[in-house]
Nucleic acid binder design. Sequence first.
DNA 1: TCGTTGAGTCAACAACTGTTGAGCGAAGCC
DNA 2: GGCTTCGCTCAACAGTTGTTGACTCAACGA
Lengths: 184, 184
Amino acid sequence: MEGTPTSRAERRRRSEERILSAARAIFAERGFQRTTIRAVAAAAEVDPALVMQYFGSKQELFEQAVRIPSIPPLDGELEPVEELLGRIGMKMGPLPQATVAMMRSMLTHPDAAEEVRGRLDAQVAQLAGALDAGDAELRAALMVSTMLGVTIAHQLLGLTALRDASPERIAETLRPALRALADG
Amino acid sequence: MEGTPTSRAERRRRSEERILSAARAIFAERGFQRTTIRAVAAAAEVDPALVMQYFGSKQELFEQAVRIPSIPPLDGELEPVEELLGRIGMKMGPLPQATVAMMRSMLTHPDAAEEVRGRLDAQVAQLAGALDAGDAELRAALMVSTMLGVTIAHQLLGLTALRDASPERIAETLRPALRALADG
DNA sequence: TCGTTGAGTCAACAACTGTTGAGCGAAGCC
DNA sequence: GGCTTCGCTCAACAGTTGTTGACTCAACGA
């Protein structure tokens, strides 16, 4: 019977992973407040108390569930605009659940808001460094905001006009706008 | 003593207005889930039961508090781009609390999500009608999404790079991007 | 084999939530 | 003045929530 491991460490690892996976899914679907530990536990087929025992609190569970690798540095080769579009291009397929969970909570959960703001600020700074003219930071911020808006409208809100558009077509249509922002 | 009206109808009207005003403020600040009827009642200096008596349920209170005049039809005179920017221009000052409440809740409250999606869809359709080329709807959707993203980043998230930029400068910097989307 | 450890459960607490029904007191009407 | 109406409050219920402590039992190390 390889399927059901009886090793202690292995069982623990798997339970923890099942919990984290369930948490990501439910946080992504409902956001922080509407997600209950009981619901996560049920989805992970585990007792609610176990979730507490492993993660200490709902907040801790959230933090660990949405922990995401930080934004990779700008690829010096590609143009910033193409870099951004590429990220969208990839992200126009389903976003990682951790990202969705983070975004879904960012307007109603102060900690998520601060985390997202921090990451976007960083991305703005990074992007601004790759632009030239004087108000690079403002233009970078507007580029990032545009990406944010399109992602929200497409992935979280499901705007009808965007729902059936292919990622490539979106990226392609968006390109001139981003370029206009990049060039000033 | 004009300040404290003793007329029944007048008292009722004022209480209802105080409740709605408090509700708008707190819904705008915390979103639907994190807003409690008790908090609204306290802010309105009223008993929680009164809120129920007047509005029937928390959901009803929310709906009445965020009720907003629907989007005015596109002014045929102005170009669509300028029209949009104008609205942003106004909205770059503080947004109406009802709007903020709606937006703050839209990612975590299904009803708010549907309402916002509906309004944005309508705005897209309206805008698409004013553009010419083939994929007008997609481009209109991206214009609206851009506005959405900038508004969120600026008003709800407080991106540092946007926080200290004047509405005019934002609108001005954004114009070429929107125009690029509008012209195809 | 046996005591220890730790994964996992069970039942409960305490706080908070939306919501309700009975009741008080003053404004309105005759 | 007396009856009615209704704005408003009080106290409570019932469900849900995060969280906890005692407990069970199988894996583990000697």
